[in-house]
Design a protein around this nucleic acid. Sequence first.
DNA 1: CTGAAAGCGCTAACAT
DNA 2: ATGTTAGCGCTTTCAG
Lengths: 319, 319
Amino acid sequence: MAVTIRDVARQARVSVSTVSRALSAPGLVKEATRQRVLDVVQGLGYQPNRAARSLITGRTGNLGIVVPDLENPFYPAVLRGVQARAREAGCAVFFCDSREADEASLVQAMAAQVDGVVLCASLLADDLIAELAGTTPLVLLNRTVTGVSSVLMDSADGMAQIERHLQELGHTQRVYLGGPEQSWSHNRRLLGLDERTQRLGSFEPNFEGGREAAERALRTDATAIIAYNDLMALGVLSYLSERDIQVPGQISVTGFDNILYAAMCHPTLTTVAMPTEEAGRVAVDLLVERLAGGAPECRELPTKLIARASTGKLRCSID
Amino acid sequence: MAVTIRDVARQARVSVSTVSRALSAPGLVKEATRQRVLDVVQGLGYQPNRAARSLITGRTGNLGIVVPDLENPFYPAVLRGVQARAREAGCAVFFCDSREADEASLVQAMAAQVDGVVLCASLLADDLIAELAGTTPLVLLNRTVTGVSSVLMDSADGMAQIERHLQELGHTQRVYLGGPEQSWSHNRRLLGLDERTQRLGSFEPNFEGGREAAERALRTDATAIIAYNDLMALGVLSYLSERDIQVPGQISVTGFDNILYAAMCHPTLTTVAMPTEEAGRVAVDLLVERLAGGAPECRELPTKLIARASTGKLRCSID
DNA sequence: CTGAAAGCGCTAACAT
DNA sequence: ATGTTAGCGCTTTCAG
């Protein structure tokens, strides 16, 4: 069996309560005693049993995060931010990809063994989320529900920046390839979209979705394609390249998220940088504040256009 | 407070032990009683307290995974496999990116609250890993240490397939851009490399590393560049594209891993498909077997060349 | 400042 | 087949 608090107590010639205090309430113990205990702890390699501790305190020291799609590099980036900050707060973090099961049951399952969970880009109904938030401290990411903390990225402004950029380049015929209709991000982006920009359906927010969308987009007379996210934009790029359509010579393309790959593809993708890691960190901050008894809070992080090679000045196409 | 086993017992008019058995040893309880208990459990929304359970059983029902770099799409893919299988086994999973801290301490920290951990592509010394494996059930991924379970992907054969492919295309001048020297995968790939292929240093296994490596590769007279992994290959592609070097017209390029982007980039990348998700699942299987008292075991998964557009027949370059 | 003792919610003997 | 009971390792009153 592993070394327990009793072993430490015996060897340090104090009671178990003193050991406990020396570790979790240093102020309540005489410095000399504390030092002695700490030495023994060190020597024995004692690690408090978390199960026993949380059985009594009701806290686990763990957090959970539920993301919609680990395959979208956006989420691993959020994960990293979450993990980094959680570590600082002394928490370990569970993860779940919600393609495995429905979000609600995943959150519920996690709730049993974490102090709080970060739920990303959830498509659940408002009341369901509110209900979950009643069960376990919840922080939403790119989603809002009244009374629930959330970390937002300013999608509307990001989209507005794209529109401005495209307009400066002379593109009057623009088309937006939409993401999931219920998605908060999609709807926020709509807010930043120029009313003259044509909206085209709702597509899967991935590479394949982008390819499908591109096919539809080509049937319009648009000279600029605004994709819901980078993954879709990549699909668009791939589709156009197959058809030997020059980007940005004939058509300009923009993405959204600034995933790593946006800088690696050809042509490099004009997109909107999302503060993903930062958002992950802030989500943990909000969770921690919540656990400390704070009120729900929303924080919106700025986004920024990254102009790259996939957008260019409008040229009169000759065909 | 949440509903406890006593509440269930009271309402079902049985003792707590019967409730406990009805849930964890169905065979020991009369069907009728069991049903009654289950109904009450359902009605009350009872969820056993995991801390209490693990305090006594010594099991947590949790697994951990430590990866070297979440930014490499390879690892999110492994994560998904791990999570999927872990869910089937009723386990939740913790994750850690080892850029946060050194692998050993991460594993050690996890060990305190999981039944076992999957350690991916570790660069730790053999004896350190063996030591960790003594502390907590461990399964290595793409790494071997005697006496420790591991899931391997056949890198040597994958590399051999690349070599064959390139040779069939007529490339006699080939250069290999190496990954981290201590890395098991790197060394296995070396095993599949033709002895006539030139080896070029050791680079960071990411996009930037690929760009640096490309610059070096261009100083050789190679007509085919074999990159350690896809991320590096993408860096190579980007570098060559900037210098207007045609791929595969002037130089062929191969990657390794078959990350999603390998199919999205331009030209699409010839690479070796790694069974990432499968490996994640197998890792969990091995862990579960280990926990059930099985002996350490190694499992090697096959790899497969995916020929795409970045490789082509050798043409006499005119310059 | 320190110790003794009472549980946290559950499982696993041990009875019946 | 079911009930009783003794802890798992820890924190936290309550006394001193």
